[in-house]
Every structure is written in structure tokens, then in C-alpha cells.
Design a protein around this nucleic acid. Structure first.
Length: 570
RNA sequence: CGGGGCGUAGCGCAGUUGGCUAGCGCGCUUGGUUCGGGACCAAGAGGUCGACAGUUCAAAUCUGUCCGCCCCGACCA
């Protein structure tokens, strides 16, 4: 491709509305342009990267026997009601009515659709196992799209679905996909980490996320400094409790009410009473399905709703309206406590178990209780690990120190079991002629996020540094002063030579100053630059420069192809 | 949805105590000189100052409403 015939609008300055590096560079390098918040146009360079990533995904999925399909993006809302996800997803679903007043939703994911398809088209165990996948645009009305292409309302996802006769089959499909994912992210040169994760609204058992460490990431993961343990902070178990000093038990002091006018938060109470947060216990009220639950947790810890939901075995967990809280506790939010609380199930995080003489709300406006003690002042029988892990915790696997780091989720895989096949009637006859329900798994990859996270982890002050595998072009010919006859001649010669050799090549044939060409070359980050200048051109010499280390090798122009062959292993 | 910020030429910005014909840099067009890390000279093109309403002799500038965008939080497959 000749640059003079291409649309590659590079920008000298950072766009005003970009914060994270990948967003800035994608716009500056002419990969994307924003249409509205959460939706971007992919320009030729950006689209080429999407295509390259998609092709890698295709190759690895096909290699595992997965078959590519293309499912509709518009769905009847009834199918979403069948699995209950119509309500669960709520405002995230983009809905509209067609001319017959029928409600349509834009697909945010495709478990329902693909399960329905399979339900209608398989009959026997002989039809299984099956893995179907597609690479397609998804639509989600996100509460807050952000960070450029990392969280958008419209994005490209590779979604795969496995259908098996039994659990063992599903485990084997899951393993295949896990393997494929490692190959895919490896080929994209991404420093990925598979972690244990929370399946969330997808349901089913254990899930794995594939994460890329970067400050710009929206998620937090726990990484052990010693062993290989890595998990989402949502699921990482807390075995011990940091900040607890072993030793003699404190003497129980008499309970005392103190006035705390308008002091509602842990920080404020701590400051007001001059008592550290670790001596406070917060009481959080939840509605678990239709029952009220109070969670007690040490003041300096954060409640983990994933663990709580698991512990309670409830399907929906939500906060309670302030009015209901006032009715239940007799006090506004901020003054709830376990002492005297009636008709509410009390569950406590392990961090509370050995606490003595702690502070809680008094269930009375503008008042707290000091020197509260379990058993003496209230009953708490249920203890469990219900908090979010902190950096001061120990590795759940080996007990050594951990780090908590930001990361981008680029892939997620779930063992769904029969959640969707049950709801949508995906059944088959086994070899005994009995009806069985299909066991499913599902496997997603955020294609756009692969691009963003690659740039996040592979850039320098001058621009993007692409790996050969997903670079928009592998080779860039930088013809300096193309108005010079000799430069033009040699450049054209090298270009046609490489084009004939089938190489992936962009030719900067613009008649502009050398400085701009060098800056643009580094910005768009093509891994191999072939620089052709006037002095060298006279001697039929060109420079081959690699973007990543800026190493330069001079070769005779007729030798370019053999040198390139060494750099690009086929 | 709560808190904060922003909206002036394609891009990045100044101007905002109301006052002349709305400016700067980059980019763009034409001509010329240059040509190895964002060249120089000259001449040009390009604007409903986010929208609407109000105050005023006079509004980019003051007031109100709305819209859009970004950040933090909530949420997150």
C-alpha cells in the first residue's frame, strides 16, 4: 500500500478527551476515531489489526475443532425472558420496537441464541460434542464507557460455546479452549495471566479470566510474589486476618453509648472517637432474595458480595432502601449495629470473630456503642470469609506475600453446566435412549481489548511498538526526499520486489520532510522500517531498522528480501 | 444515577471584569526555496464561539434550561 493512497490521519498532539496511553496512541496513530461515547470507527490501520487478531483467533479455534458461525445481532426479547436474563441485565440491554410493535434486543452476548439453535438441531448423543464460535459485534448500554476502546457500548467479541454429553466432556472442551486461549494471546505477544474468577451473572461454576497487567486496567487481581497463584480480588480467599496482634485477650469493658451527631462513615467515626477503623465493626444490610441479612465486618475491610452471595446461596443480592433500613433498625444509614437487631439474620466475616470491645452503630440516630462484645451483647453464630482480600493479606495458596495489581480482562471462560440448556430445552437421547440435558461451557475474547492492552504494554515515548503478528503492516518503506530521482528509483524497486514476494508492506511515498516520516513511522509502530536516503540510494544501499530496538543494518537493495526473510519467519 | 471538569476553525489551545472586523500554533491550498528526526518565505481557504431562551444599546463573555464529551464513584458478562 502506498501511503499517498491510504487514509492514515496521524496526529501530532494527544486528543483532548483521551487519558490512557492506548487511547491516545490509537487516535494519534490513525487507528480509530470516536463517533459517540462508547463507539469508535476503525480506520484502515485499525481495521487491519482487528483482522489480524481475528485471523489468529480463527486459526486457533479451528485447530481445536471449533466451527465458526454467524448469529444474528437482533433478538426477540422473549428468548431473553426464558432464561431470566432480560431482567437480570436490565438497562444494559439495548431494546427497540420494530414496525409490528415487537420488542427486539441487540445481542449483548449469545448464550440464549446459540443454545436455542443447538436445541433445535441436535437429537442424539452422536451429534455431540460440539463447539461453535463467532466473531461479532456485541451491544451493551454500559453505565460508563471509558478508556477508549477498553469499555465500549459496541465491541467485537469472539464468543465460543461448547456442548457436551457429560461433565467429563465439558471439562475436556474447557481444557481445549484454555489451551487455545494461551496460544492466541501468546501469538499476540500479550503478557497474559490466567486467573481464577467470579462467574457473575453468567452463572455456573468456576471461571477463568485472562488478564493483562496494566495500570489502566479496570480490574484488580491478586498475584503471589512466590508461587503461581493469581486470582481476581473478588474470589481470592482470606485465610488469616492482617492486623491482629496475638496475645492476651482484652478484658471485656462495660458497653457504653456515645453521641455521634451526623457521624456516619467508618472514617468519620474513627476520627471522631479517636479509635482506629480496625476496632470498629460495620453492619451492612442486604436483601438476599427476599430475606434481610446483616453482614458484620471489621471497619477497615471491604465486604465481598461475591462471597456473601455464595455463602447465602441466594440468586439475587442487593442493598436495601434507606426507608426500610430505618424501619428495621430504627436509625438512618450509618448507625446500624447488631445489638438489639431483630428479625434479621446476622452473618459475620471471620475478621470479627476475635474482636473485643469494638464500636458499632447503636440503631439510634446520632449514636454509636462502644465496648461491644459478641455473645455478651448480641448473638453471632455464622462466621465465614466474606471480605475482599487486601495487599496485607497472605497468599491463599502458599501463605507468602501478595501484590494487588490493575489488569485488563481480555478473555473469560465459564463452565455453564445446564443453566441455558435447561431453560431452552437443549436435550439429546443418550445411547440408552434416555433424554439428557446438554452440558455447556462458554468462552469469550474481547478482540478490541487485545489491541488496547497490547498497546498499553508495548509502547514508548514515540508511539506504538507492534509485534509482527498483529502489526497493521509488517514492513514500512520510509523513502526520504522522494523528490530525488535516485531515492524514488531505489524505493520503487524495493517496494515492487517485496510486493512480488507477498510481503505485508506499507510504502511511505509522501513528498514531505524526513522528520515527519520518522515521527509517523515510530508513531504507527510498524516493526520493520526500511529507510532509503539520498546518499545510500546512490550506492543502492538501504537501511533496515527494527522498531523495538532501533537497530539498523545496511544492505544492498537487491539483498533486501533475503534480509527480510530472516526477520520474518514464515 | 451522585461528585468534578470541559465544549471557540480539521487538531491542540488563548480570549470570558459585556465593547471595534474572534485570535494563536499545527494542519490544509497555491507558488518558490529546502531535504536523515515534526524545515523556511510569500499569498490564501476555513467559524451558527455546543443548542435554545433571557438580560442589554451591545453577549464567545452575564443568567437559565438543555445537549455532548472526559474523569472519580456506583455498576460491570
Amino acid at each position: 500500500m502506498r501511503w499517498t493512497q491510504a487514509l492514515i490521519p496521524t496526529l501530532k498532539e494527544d486528543p483532548q478527551d483521551a487519558e490512557v496511553i492506548s487511547h491516545k496512541l490509537m487516535v494519534r496513530a490513525g487507528l480509530i476515531r470516536k463517533l459517540i461515547s462508547g463507539a469508535y470507527s476503525y480506520l484502515p490501520l485499525g481495521f487491519r489489526v482487528l483482522q489480524k487478531v481475528s485471523n489468529i483467533i480463527r486459526e486457533e479455534m479451528n485447530a481445536k475443532g471449533a466451527q465458526e458461525v454467524l448469529l444474528p445481532a437482533i433478538h426477540p426479547s422473549e428468548i431473553w425472558m426464558k432464561t431470566g436474563r432480560y431482567d437480570l441485565l436490565g438497562p444494559v440491554l439495548i431494546k427497540f420496537k420494530d414496525r409490528h410493535d415487537k420488542e427486539i434486543v441487540l445481542g449483548p452476548t449469545h448464550e440464549e441464541i446459540v443454545t436455542d439453535l443447538v436445541a433445535n438441531n441436535i437429537k442424539s448423543y452422536k451429534d455431540l460434542p460440539l463447539i461453535l464460535y463467532q466473531i461479532q459485534t456485541k451491544f451493551r448500554d454500559e453505565p460508563r464507557p471509558r478508556f477508549g476502546v477498553m469499555r465500549t457500548a459496541e465491541f467485537i467479541m469472539k464468543d465460543a460455546y461448547s456442548f457436551d454429553r457429560d461433565i467429563e466432556g465439558m471439562e475436556s472442551s474447557y481444557k481445549k479452549m484454555h489451551d487455545a486461549y494461551c496460544k492466541i494471546f501468546g501469538r499476540c505477544n500479550l503478557p497474559y495471566i490466567p486467573v481464577e474468577a467470579d462467574p457473575g451473572i453468567m452463572g455456573g461454576g468456576l471461571s477463568h479470566e485472562f488478564m493483562v497487567l496494566t495500570e489502566a486496567g479496570e480490574d484488580e487481581i491478586v498475584i503471589c510474589q512466590k508461587c503461581k497463584y493469581a486470582a481476581s480480588t473478588q474470589v481470592a480467599a482470606c485465610h488469616s486476618c492482617p492486623g491482629v496482634k496475638p496475645g492476651k485477650a482484652e478484658k471485656k469493658l462495660p458497653i457504653a453509648e456515645v453521641e455521634t451527631p451526623g457521624i456516619k462513615t467508618i472514617d468519620k467515626v474513627s476520627e471522631f472517637l479517636k479509635i482506629e477503623p480496625a476496632k470498629l465493626v460495620k453492619t451492612l444490610l442486604y436483601m438476599a432474595d427476599d430475606k434481610m441479612v446483616a453482614l458484620l465486618i471489621r471497619g477497615d475491610f471491604e465486604a465481598n458480595e461475591t462471597k456473601l452471595k455464595d455463602y447465602l446461596k441466594c440468586s439475587a443480592l442487593g442493598f436495601i432502601d434507606e426507608s426500610v433500613i430505618e424501619k428495621t433498625t430504627g436509625a438512618p444509614i450509618g448507625f446500624s449495629g447488631p445489638v438489639g437487631l431483630k428479625d434479621v439474620r446476622i452473618v459475620a466475616d471471620n475478621s470479627v470473630k476475635d474482636m473485643t470491645n469494638f464500636v458499632t452503630g447503636a440503631n439510634k440516630k446520632d449514636a454509636h456503642l462502644m465496648n461491644v462484645n459478641i455473645d455478651r451483647d448480641f448473638e453471632a453464630k455464622e462466621f465465614s470469609d466474606l471480605r475482599v482480600i487486601t495487599k496485607d493479606d497472605k497468599c491463599p495458596a502458599c501463605g507468602k506475600a501478595i501484590d494487588i495489581k490493575h489488569a485488563i480482562e481480555i478473555g473469560h471462560m465459564f463452565k455453564l453446566g445446564t443453566k441455558y440448556s435447561e431453560a431452552l430445552g437443549a436435550r439429546f437421547l443418550n445411547h440408552e435412549g434416555k433424554t439428557n440435558t446438554v452440558i455447556m461451557g462458554c468462552y469469550g475474547i474481547g478482540v478490541n481489548r487485545i489491541i488496547a492492552s497490547l498497546i498499553e504494554t508495548s509502547n514508548d515515548k514515540d508511539g506504538i511498538i507492534w509485534p509482527l503478528s498483529i502489526a497493521p503492516y509488517q514492513i514500512l518503506i520510509v523513502a526520504l526526499n522522494i523528490a530525488n530521482k535516485k531515492v524514488k528509483e531505489v524505493s520503487e524497486e524495493v517496494y515492487s520486489q517485496l510486493k512480488a514476494g507477498g510481503y505485508d508492506i506499507l510504502y511511505d511515498d509522501r513528498d514531505i520532510s524526513a522528520g515527519i516520516k520518522f515521527k509517523d513511522a515510530d508513531l504507527i509502530g510498524i516493526p520493520i522500517q526500511i529507510v532509503i536516503g539520498e546518499k545510500n540510494a546512490k550506492k543502492h544501499i538501504v537501511e533496515i531498522k527494527t522498531r523495538i530496538d532501533r537497530k539498523v543494518v545496511e544492505v544492498k537493495s537487491f539483498d533486501v528480501e533475503s534480509r527480510i526473510k530472516q526477520l520474518i519467519p514464515s
